[in-house]
Deep mutational scan, measured.
Amino acid sequence: TRVETATETAWISLVTALHLVLGLSAVLGLLLLRWQFPAHYRRLRHALW
């Protein structure tokens, strides 16, 4: 049971790290898009909202 718990903890930390990385890359990508294509971003936002 001790090994299982350790594996579970490792998986949880791995998944958390993955989610953090994905979230950060998504935010960075959005910022980059907004910085590179302001007109396109505004049009996209206008279409979405």
Rank of each mutant, 00 (worst) to 15 (best):
W49I: 05
L20M: 07
S25Q: 04
Q36F: 11
I12S: 12
W49K: 05
E8H: 06
P38A: 14
R2E: 07
S25T: 10
V27L: 12
T7W: 09
W49Q: 10
V21S: 10
S25M: 07
L24F: 09
V27C: 09
T5H: 02
R45S: 07
V21T: 06
A17E: 03
E4Q: 05
H46W: 03
L14N: 07
L20K: 00
L48M: 13
A39Y: 11
L30P: 05
L32Y: 12
L33S: 02
R34Q: 02
L48C: 05
T7M: 08
P38H: 10
H40M: 15
R43W: 10
T7L: 05
E8V: 04
L44S: 02
L18W: 03
L44E: 00
R45Q: 05
A26P: 15
Y41V: 13
L30F: 14
T1W: 07
H40F: 08
A6M: 08
L31R: 01
R43G: 05
W49Y: 02
L30A: 12
V21L: 09
R43D: 04
A26Q: 02
L33Q: 00
T1M: 07
L14M: 07
R43P: 02
L30D: 00
T5P: 03
L14Y: 08
R42C: 08
R2Q: 13
E4C: 03
A39G: 12
S13N: 11
P38C: 10
R34I: 13
Q36L: 07
R42G: 11
S13T: 15
L22N: 00
T1S: 09
W35S: 05
A6C: 07
Y41T: 07
T5I: 02
F37N: 04
L32C: 11
S25C: 13
R43Y: 07
S13A: 14
H19S: 15
V15W: 08
L44G: 02
A26K: 01
V15G: 10
I12Y: 14
G29R: 00
H46S: 07
V3A: 03
V15K: 15
Y41A: 14
T16H: 06
H40Q: 15
H19R: 06
T9S: 12
V3H: 00
E4P: 02
A47Y: 08
I12D: 06
V3P: 00
Y41M: 13
S25F: 12
T9A: 13
Q36W: 08
Y41Q: 03
A17T: 06
W49C: 04
Q36P: 02
L32F: 10
T9M: 15
W35Q: 06
W11L: 11
A47I: 05
L44W: 07
P38Q: 15
R43K: 15
R34W: 10
T5Y: 02
V21Q: 00
V15S: 13
A6P: 02
R45P: 02
W11R: 13
I12L: 07
R34N: 02
L28W: 10
L31V: 14
P38N: 11
A10Q: 15
H19W: 15
L31Y: 10
W49G: 03
H19V: 15
L31F: 14
F37P: 01
A39F: 12
W11P: 08
L44M: 10
A47L: 05
R45D: 01
L48D: 00
L31K: 00
W11H: 12
E4T: 06
W35N: 06
L24W: 03
H19L: 15
A47W: 10
G29E: 01
L44T: 03
W35H: 09
A17F: 05
A10R: 13
L33N: 00
L20H: 00
R42M: 12
H46L: 07
V21M: 10
W49V: 05
L31I: 12
L22S: 05
L44F: 09
R42I: 08
Q36K: 12
L48W: 05
V3C: 02
L33F: 12
A6I: 03
V21R: 00
V15A: 10
Y41R: 03
W49F: 05
L48G: 02
L32V: 10
Q36I: 07
T7K: 12
L44I: 08
G29F: 14
W11F: 09
A6V: 04
R2V: 07
W35E: 04
T5N: 01
